[in-house]
Design a protein around this nucleic acid. Structure first.
Lengths: 182, 182
DNA sequence: CTTATCATGTAAGTGGTTACATGATTCC
DNA sequence: GGAATCATGTAACCACTTACATGATAAG
């Protein structure tokens, strides 16, 4: 199965939260959604046009300057129906993430290979940075109007909890590997 | 960035652990590697031929029956060089996983929408099953010759720790959502 | 007046899935 | 002899990335 064009539902969902342009959506994927989903503008714009063509969204188009068209999309009744149907559908299986850490660790196999220790050290550094970034995000989000956006806070808490817990596991593993190899 | 054909390195790495056929690799992706990486046979076989053509692996081919060729690959010196170079390279950024849970949660936004509670309940059920599966895997792996495959145990422990920690977070969030909505 | 950001579009190419296709071996 | 699994291959298609391309507006 894997992908049945999930992007279309996400676009629908974002537009349902508030009217948006393709550019607004692109910015969301680059900022507060960056840890949870991503799409490039080259994927977003054609998909929006397709959704418009099938009547799930509609655009208020205005021309700025000589020829540039700005599209502000809003969701239609039909779009809401499709969105709610998707939201209520069972979650699809999660394909393995494209994280190189576990597969590299598996391939190293020998505990005494120094590359393994390097790998764990790098992984710790990488996730410390991510946790700092997420904590910053949390502090800005808590002070904006997004306070009433429960889902947003929920997934931020989720990401922070995951990073904290992962980091503590990593340092425990690092210690036990140090014991093993010394 | 994203993908620079990571599969080639994984194939190289697996063959470096022990000589393997494409079919063996396919089976690994369907069993003990299934949580960490995946590829279909339609992707594996052509890639193996490409690696063979570039001299990173070599095949012992034998014909069984009338015409079916079985290829047992082993890694070459050149292949080992390429593999070790990749293993020592810094980890690439992890693209967001294709997990629908966080993006659905974000899109629901309103804590009182019952779909959110359903979603969390479903997520808990889904991950309980996964944890049971991982624990089973751990008990079989610990009793096989794989005991000396450190990396394998490491990523299994990682996955189990992640599931346990995620499940406890989920039930805490579920309780707090119940308080909020009643 | 230049740079950054806003704003949208398409084309080429790659990674990955799904489907089509064939044949061998083992176990019941 | 039929089913399950072993074993390999290709073609069509889809999701997604990268690159090319254009133009508008705001800030310094």
């Amino acid at each position: 199965m894997a992908q049945k064009n999930i992007l279309q539902y996400i676009l629908l969902g974002l537009i349902s939260l508030q009217d948006m342009s393709g550019y607004d959506i692109k910015k969301l994927f680059n900022t507060e959604l960056s840890d949870f989903w991503h799409a490039n503008h080259s994927q977003i714009y054609p998909e929006l046009r397709r959704l418009e063509a099938t009547g799930l969204i509609e655009a208020n188009t205005k021309i700025v300057g000589e020829k540039l068209e700005k599209h502000l999309y809003h969701i239609t009744q039909q779009g809401l129906t499709v969105l709610h149907h998707w939201l209520k559908e069972p979650l699809n299986d999660v394909p393995p993430s494209k994280d190189e850490f576990p597969i590299k660790a598996y391939l190293i196999s020998d505990a005494k290979n120094p590359i393994l220790m390097d790998l764990i050290t790098e992984e710790i550094a990488r996730h410390k940075i991510k946790l700092i970034y997420l904590n910053n995000r949390m502090s800005t989000v808590s002070t904006t109007d997004t306070v009433n956006h429960y889902g947003h806070l929920l997934i931020l808490r989720r990401a922070i909890h995951r990073e904290q817990s992962y980091l503590s596991w990593l340092s425990a593993e690092k210690k036990s590997l140090e014991q093993l190899t010394k």
